[in-house]
C-alpha cells in the first residue's frame, strides 16, 4: 500500500436524454420560462469580420439524421481571440463566442449565424487554422462528443494546422472540413457530422 493521492474523481457523464430542451432550450420543449435563453447570440452586435451561416445535420450509424441533438459551439473572434481571460487578446464588447444550437424536430437540420473566426495560437508555437469547437449531446450519446469544424476555403492554413495533422489517416481530415457555398451574398458552410460508419467524423479526446 502507499499513500492516497487524494484527487477527487470527475463526476461520471450521463446522456442528456431526449428532453434536454426542457433545461437548455425550454422554448423548443414548448414553454416559455426564462427572461432569456442562453446561447442564441454568439457574436453580439459589435463583432467584426465576415458574417457566415453554418448548417448541417448529425447523422447516426443507420444514416438517419438525429432529430433531438443539441450542439454547443465555442469559437474565437475574427482576430483569433477567445472571450476569456486566457483567450489571447481583447474581443469586441458583447462578443461571447459560445452558442447553443438544436436540430429541427422533423428534419434534424440545424443552423446558426456567426462570424468566421481568425487563426488562433497553437499549443506551443505556430498557429491553428480557423476552426469552431463543437460539443454534441443527445439521447443515446453517453458522454458529450468533441469535434472541430474547419473551412474549405482555408486550404493553406488547414494544411499546416497542428490538430488536423495529428490525424494519421489523412483522408479522415476531410470529415472536419465544412463546404462553402453562397446564398444571398452570404457564405454558408455545410457541416454534416457522421457519428458512425462510413465517413465517420473524427472525434477528439480533449
Amino acid at each position: 500500500m502507499s499513500q492516497d493521492l487524494a484527487y477527487l474523481k470527475e463526476s461520471a457523464s450521463q446522456t442528456a436524454g431526449p428532453y434536454v430542451h426542457i433545461g437548455l432550450a425550454p422554448g423548443a420543449a414548448g414553454f416559455d420560462i426564462y427572461r432569456q435563453e442562453l446561447g442564441h447570440d454568439i457574436t453580439g452586435p459589435n463583432a467584426k469580420g465576415d458574417r457566415i451561416r453554418i448548417e448541417g445535420r448529425v447523422i447516426d450509424g443507420m444514416g438517419a439524421p438525429i432529430k433531438d441533438v443539441l450542439l454547443e459551439v465555442w469559437q474565437a473572434n475574427a482576430n483569433g481571440y477567445y472571450a476569456h481571460p486566457e483567450g489571447g487578446g481583447e474581443v469586441e464588447d458583447g462578443f461571447c463566442g459560445w452558442g447553443r444550437i438544436i436540430s429541427d424536430f422533423d428534419s434534424g437540420e440545424w443552423s446558426f449565424e456567426t462570424v468566421k473566426p481568425g487563426k488562433t495560437q497553437g499549443r506551443n508555437v505556430g498557429t491553428q487554422a480557423p476552426h469552431l469547437n463543437f460539443w454534441i449531446v443527445a439521447r443515446g450519446i453517453n458522454i458529450g462528443l468533441n469535434t472541430r469544424m474547419y473551412f474549405d476555403d482555408e486550404t493553406e492554413a488547414n494544411a499546416s494546422d497542428p490538430v488536423l495533422n495529428l490525424i494519421e489517416w489523412a483522408h479522415r481530415r476531410a470529415t472536419l472540413i465544412a463546404q462553402r457555398s453562397e446564398e444571398d451574398g452570404m457564405s454558408v458552410y455545410r457541416f454534416d457530422i457522421q457519428l458512425q460508419g462510413e465517413n465517420e467524423t473524427v472525434f477528439f479526446d480533449v
Binding site: I66, A83, H84, C96, W98, T120, N133, G140, E200
Partner: peptide, 27 residues
C-alpha cells in the same frame, strides 16, 4: 441502452493536448 448502438462512434477518438481552444470556455 439501445439508442447508444447507432449513436456511438466506432473509431477511436484522437487524443488532443490542450491549446487555447480547449483551455478557454464561456463565462
Amino acid at each position: 441502452y439501445k439508442t447508444s448502438v447507432a449513436r456511438s462512434p466506432r473509431y477511436s477518438m484522437i487524443s488532443l493536448q490542450n491549446s487555447v481552444s480547449e483551455i478557454t470556455g464561456p463565462r
